[in-house]
Structure formats: C-alpha cells, structure tokens
Design a protein around this nucleic acid. Structure first.
Lengths: 243, 243
DNA sequence: GCATGCAAAATTGTTAACAATCATTGTTTT
DNA sequence: AAAACAATGATTGTTAACAATTTTGCATGC
C-alpha cells in the first residue's frame, strides 16, 4: 500500500545541476594536473571555493570515488587517486576488450552518416593539432573513442567506456613521458580507414594496436613523484624518509 | 604546498561499513521484489528502519542510482528503477560484448586450478537446485559469471560486470515469465566444457548462446504492472487515465 | 639527537532544525 | 460536470551546529 506515483521521467535531462558542474570542474583540474595525484581534498575549502554546502561536496566526492578518480578513506578524507602500474595495465586491457567489440560492430554496420560523423571529429582533432591547442587535442582524442562507442549504439557500453576514458586520462597525466605524448591523432585516421574497410578483424586489430601504442608511450615504471617529494626536488636521498 | 600525506591504502578493506550494509540490504529487497519497480523510497522511513541518519540513506541512494538500480529525480525522491525493454536489450548486449572477451581469455589460459574453481562453483549451483533453494540458485547463477570475470584476471572488468549482473537481476525480476525461470544451471556446465576445450571461438559462441537464452526466457513485451494499476485490477479501461 | 606521550588544532562524521518543493485534496469558477 | 485554482500535508533540499576522529606541534624523557 501507499504506492503513490511512478517515477515517470529520467533524471538529468536538460539543465546542468550544480552537482554535475562541480564534478566537471574538479575533473578538469585533475586532468590538468592542477590537482596532483595523492593530493588531499579538504571539504570545507572546496565548499567555500564553489560556494556550496559541504554536503554537496560530499556527494560529489562519492561520484568521483565511484569513478576511481579519488580515494575516499574513512575519517581521513578524500585524495586524488594514484593509479598503480597494475591498475593502469588493467584499465587499458579492459579498454581493449570493450573497444574490440565496439569497432567490430561499427565495421560491420558502417553507414555514410556514421562515416561522416567520424570524419567530422577527425577534422576537429586535426584543427586542434594545427592550432597547437594541446589540451583540446587530448580531450578530443578521448572523445574520439567515445564517439565510436556511441556509434555502436549501446548506451551501457558508452557510459562505461566514458568512465574508463576518464580514468585513462588520469593515468596518462600521471605516467606520461617528459616530452608531451603524441596524441595519436594520425592513428585515429588509420582506424577510420580500417573501419571503412568493413572487415571486423582488421578493425579490431587496428584498435588493439592503437591502444597498445598509447600504453607503450607511457612510462609505466617510475610514476612521477607528484607529491612534495623533497628528495627529488633537492636531489638528495633522505636518510629515513617515508616509504 | 601543504600536501600533507599520501592516501596510502585502499578504502574498504576489512570490515563492512554500515553504508555498504544498507546497500546490500536494499539490493536484496529489490532482487526479491519486496521492493517493486517504480516504488517510491522515502528517506525518513528508511532512515528509521535502519536506525541511521537520513544523510546516510541519501549517500546510499547515490550509490544505487549510479548502479541504475534506482532513479533519483530532483525534488521528487528515489524510485526503484523500471528498466525499459530497450534498456534490458542493451544490458544483455553489453554483457555479450564483455563476456565474449572474458571467456576467450579463460579458454586460452585454462589451468587445473581455475578449472576446479569453476567445478566447485557448479557443484554449489547443483546443490542449490537439488535443495530447491530458488533464491540461492539465482544468486549463484549470477556469481558464476562473476567468477569467470575474476578468473580473467582483470579487476576493472570484474567490477563492471558485477554491476551489469545486478542490473540483469533486476531486469529478470521485472520481466520473468510467470513460471520461474530455469536458472540455466545446465548451460553453465556446457560452458565449462567449452572452456576446457580451449578454443576461444567455441567458448565465445557458447557464452553468446547462453546469454541469448537468458534473454529469450524473458517476456520482453508487457512488463508486469507492479504499481497500483486500478484499470487492470478492476478490469475496465479508464476514460482518460495516464499514459 | 631521537623517540614517546600529551594537548591543541584541524578535519571529518552526524544530527537536528529550517526552508523550499511537490503531491493531494478540497473549493471555486466557467 | 470539467477545469482551474488554492490550501494543506508530506517529503526533499539545505544549512548550521555539535561530536568524534585524526593530525600536528610541542614538550618530556631516554
């Protein structure tokens, strides 16, 4: 009894809730490395910064933690995630698995409309490269993969891959080589050609090659110190420092 | 500066936080259909039921919403999710994609230890069937797929599939045929044999067949009314009723 | 000098009260 | 009678204060 009303509609349809806004704001800061891995996030400071209540910051933390972008430890607070090497490997391995299915589906169901959507995106990537807009290039590079997922026509996969791509971005930010990573925009063109070929095996192989290439560009050996590591800053080895 | 301490450890290691407990409690109620799709969840009632603050219920809602088990609509509250037919199709399609990769990996990397783990699980499924413990059988059936994901050795995939399986369970609860669904425990044995065969293509095909079989056992046409539908209860069609 | 223990400050976790919003019921108007 | 309108009650959203915990700084003793 007392079963009042059906929910009817979906939640966040039109306008952006402030909660979502803060999420994206922090996300951007993380990917820009203005917030470095391991850094502590103090609720009250953030609340004042964004002019919202602490409760909302708390809710945002839960979202970020669910996406593995921060670590939430009880009674201690929130910290920017520090993906381990093993985690990095697993994320890219997972993407290989997922995107394998994605490109296979697209390759066997290519249409002129889809092809032009991909081409349009590549054009934007090319433009960003030409303009030297490194940040935009990185973002567009991630969105390329997201576009493919969308074209595969499965919202579940699309949402999952979106989170994986965000995680990948954090990993890339944490492990990228000193010289800026080539955003592999030319590899995306190669991929489009493979997709147009229509052979799912070829397309899948190309995607696997691409993801491996991204991973291999990382320096998955010594993560950048990130946190205030005075030993490396001052070039001497501490006698009994932490860890 | 002021970058005090690294997070060091992972969050929920040993003991179960009350938050997690409430999540599982509600989850069980949803899968048991004690909480029916579309039903409204009132914060204060739940808070009193579990003897916690409303804030914690709120946090739990966020988790459940992230896993698509409830819908959160602003200013209106939380409702048990009512997966649409299209959503159901996409969830199973996504599982096909993921589990394709999973069984391929297992088939090509089978070891005696892994095989015996699977056999042990099948034994438990068999036991549940024999005991007529329907609820246990359903849970074990889901955990079979989760075990395969674990054996594939990728935590990212494992966690994602866990959520997908929970969603599947809600879908099954919502769309299952009047007579209880055969939990396909024999199909799992067929799958094990395919995995032991070592041919990834055969194993993948068997998994696809299995997932399709589950989906086909559903009645993806008329979702059970669930909510208080007086029109159907009293057997007459309202003149200008909703929808 | 280094470790240990204690006190103060900072931070998170929790609770309770208040404000805003929505659903329902009852009333009025056309 | 049907639709628009208004008042009530229930429920969510927000804020602020308080309690519990952790971290930090400092003093003490070895």
């Amino acid at each position: 009894m007392a079963n009042p009303a059906p929910p009817t509609t979906y939640q966040g349809s039109g306008k952006l809730r402030p909660e979502e806004l803060i999420y994206r704001e922090m996300l951007g800061a993380i990917l820009d490395r203005r917030l470095e891995p391991g850094m502590k996030l103090i609720e009250e400071d953030l609340a004042k910064t964004f002019s919202v209540s602490r409760a909302r910051i708390r809710a945002t933390f839960l979202q970020l933690a669910h996406d593995k972008l921060i670590n939430l430890v009880p009674n201690r607070g929130a910290f920017i995630a520090e993906p381990t090497i093993n985690e990095a490997i697993e994320v890219f391995s997972a993407r290989r698995m997922i995107e394998d299915g994605v490109v296979r589906k697209i390759a066997t169901h290519m249409t002129p409309d889809r092809a032009s959507q991909i081409r349009d995106h590549l054009e934007r990537e090319h433009q960003a490269h030409h303009d030297g807009d490194h940040r935009a290039a990185i973002i567009l590079s991630g969105e390329f993969h997201l576009l493919l997922a969308r074209l595969a026509g499965n919202l579940v996969i699309e949402e999952f891959l979106e989170r994986l791509i965000l995680r990948s971005s954090l990993i890339i930010a944490m492990y990228e080589s000193p010289q800026p990573v080539d955003c592999s925009h030319s590899e995306h063109e190669t991929l489009l050609n493979a997709l147009l070929g229509g052979d799912p095996d070829v397309a899948a192989a190309e995607m696997a090659k691409h993801l491996d290439a991204i991973r291999n560009r990382l320096q998955l050996h010594h993560p950048k110190p990130a946190k205030t590591d005075f030993a490396s800053i001052f070039g001497r080895t501490p006698k009994s420092a932490a860890s």
